[in-house]
Design a protein around this nucleic acid. Sequence first.
DNA 1: TTAATTCCTATTAATTAAATAGAAATTATT
DNA 2: AATAATTTCTATTTAATTAATAGGAATTAA
Lengths: 134, 134
Amino acid sequence: MKLTTRFRYGTRAVLDLAIHAAERPVSLKDIAQRQGISRKYLETLFSTLQSSGIVRAVRGPRGGYRLTRKPEDISLRRLYEVLEGSGPLVDCTADPDICLRSASCVTQQVWEEMYNLCIGYLDSISIQELINRS
Amino acid sequence: MKLTTRFRYGTRAVLDLAIHAAERPVSLKDIAQRQGISRKYLETLFSTLQSSGIVRAVRGPRGGYRLTRKPEDISLRRLYEVLEGSGPLVDCTADPDICLRSASCVTQQVWEEMYNLCIGYLDSISIQELINRS
DNA sequence: TTAATTCCTATTAATTAAATAGAAATTATT
DNA sequence: AATAATTTCTATTTAATTAATAGGAATTAA
């Protein structure tokens, strides 16, 4: 059970954007340099972030990205759902029909509860909270 | 972030063993049939479980496996550590040197806390607890 | 002696994530 | 109008890991 690079890098990138966004949009080139993440990889992440409504692009010279809302309104839960994209810890939680045993499976309940714990925790942490800690 | 098949199947197999272990050891053939898991796959899991001291094999006809301790003394945390084997949610938690940013990384703290939540939860659930629920 | 089992060592297959590539579209600036 | 800095799009490649299988050796109860 590991977090994906997508989610980890994405979180750092959004945090970086939140910290550096003043009057100008922030380019991926700058984020890439500061965070040590390849610009090309960030492109794929920000494509997802934009279509999820978390950031908005400004194209052309001096362009880049802006957050669409305040850092306190962006939870890690949202970033997890958008970037990690894998859903619950086990597939049978989301779709019980994939396993004949779902109805009577006590382990499924446990994995679901564990997932709820994780999601609840991520929901309690916002990008603003990360800014405060840094 | 998904749980591995190793851990999920392993947990179900140990639970099955705990439920069916009476005077005789339980063979992998029986567990495989009841749980719908290939015997060959169970062999690899039980090899790990035995070397971790959770089960003990009895070879030969009428052989199989027994638990080495009571179901209430086997936590899912232990099974996770033995079967999942992947450690923390991110590698930098275990070994900060793999990332230059570790010292000042606020996300690392968050991933670590999230991991602690998961492990704490798994620690609170024993095989006996699963038996009670089933 | 036989048959049922675990044990050992590989190997293969499948899946997913990670990373890169290159060219097109957009637009501020000069 | 030209240039350069950026995002956008689509595809591909690489790497890593997990999942699953295979076959025969060792063990031992009956």
